[in-house]
């Protein structure tokens, strides 16, 4: 390609990308900027692009009308627990499937994998009956967390990731009479740290944003997660756009901050185990 047409291509690319980036970000910008403008007077959401007067009144209304602090605490608890269990159990199982030989390993792995195609709607109703009617766990953290303790998708990612780690160190440790769990803890975990970090971040964000299951198993306002609480707030206060935008910002901001501080992991992370399948 001649350098002239190369330059033209780059110019076009930049122009298109800047416009598209603008279109992508502007809704979130509106949300954020709108949450600092007191629009209680009008039922229509029309934030000024650069507000003249900043106001935290929408936030005051949101935290006053809703049990928002409790929702955030609930989300932090649930997402943290689910992240820890997923990282631990998925890495353990991923290691076993990738590096240990045992009868049935292939069959079990594929049995797990094929069920990923089954939509959540199929298992939803029995799961609901099981949790709410049989175990009587409605409105508890346990009900929200239990089905999410370790996902098959994460086991798969960890298996892909673990198989890229060198086997020689494992053999060396085995000769040194390390127990298998000792090998996992002292050899595998330190080597796998980058992969585990990616898994942890993605699990935390996914669980923070999870909506459907927490919606089903929580009844009282105190047990809602921030996403479920936010949805209920939208239905209850549908005319107070300012407070709604404040709530939406509260629901999204922790993840946006997490994203910008751990950008590197996000932007490389999703290619782990995804492309070659």
């Amino acid at each position: 390609m001649t350098s002239k047409s190369k330059i033209a291509l780059i110019a076009v690319a930049l122009a298109v990308l800047i416009v598209w980036a603008f279109v992508t970000v502007i809704p979130l910008y509106w949300m954020f900027i709108g949450s600092f403008q007191d629009s209680a007077a009008s039922a229509v959401f029309k934030p000024q692009m650069i507000p003249e007067i900043w106001s935290i009144a929408p936030y005051e209304r949101f935290f006053h009308k809703a049990a928002a602090v409790r929702w955030i605490v609930n989300s932090v608890i649930v997402a943290s627990v689910v992240t820890v269990t997923n990282v631990f159990f998925a890495s353990l199982a991923g290691y076993a499937f990738a590096k240990l030989k045992f009868p049935g390993s292939k069959t079990i792995f594929w049995a797990l994998l094929t069920t990923m195609m089954i939509p959540a709607q199929v298992t939803l109703i029995p799961l609901y009956i099981l949790m709410i009617n049989i175990f009587q766990l409605g409105d508890t953290y346990t009900a929200i967390v239990l089905p999410a303790v370790v996902s098959v998708g994460n086991v798969f990612l960890m298996k892909q990731y673990m198989s890229t780690l060198p086997t020689s160190l494992i053999h060396a440790a085995r000769i040194d009479a390390c127990s298998e769990f000792g090998i996992y803890r002292k050899v595998i975990l330190p080597m796998a740290k980058p992969g585990l970090a990616v898994l942890a971040i993605f699990t935390f964000v996914a669980q923070w944003n999870e909506f459907f299951w927490p919606l089903l198993v929580t009844k009282s306002s105190e047990m809602r997660t921030i996403q479920v609480g936010l949805a209920s707030f939208v239905f209850a206060e549908s005319t107070d756009y300012g407070a709604i935008m404040a709530g939406a910002s509260v629901g999204a901001l922790p993840m946006v901050i997490l994203f910008f501080s751990l950008q590197r992991y996000f932007l490389q992370g999703i290619t782990v185990g995804a492309v070659k399948g």
Binding site: P27, V205, M245, M255
Partner: peptide, 26 residues
């Protein structure tokens, strides 16, 4: 590259609930 990747990835981090709320207003 990094800049555009980051900016265009942003809505993926925001929750479905947040995005729906914003689009109700839009």
């Amino acid at each position: 590259q990094t800049f555009f990747k980051a900016v265009l990835y942003l809505p993926t981090v925001a929750s479905g609930v947040t995005l729906s709320i914003v689009w109700i207003a839009i």
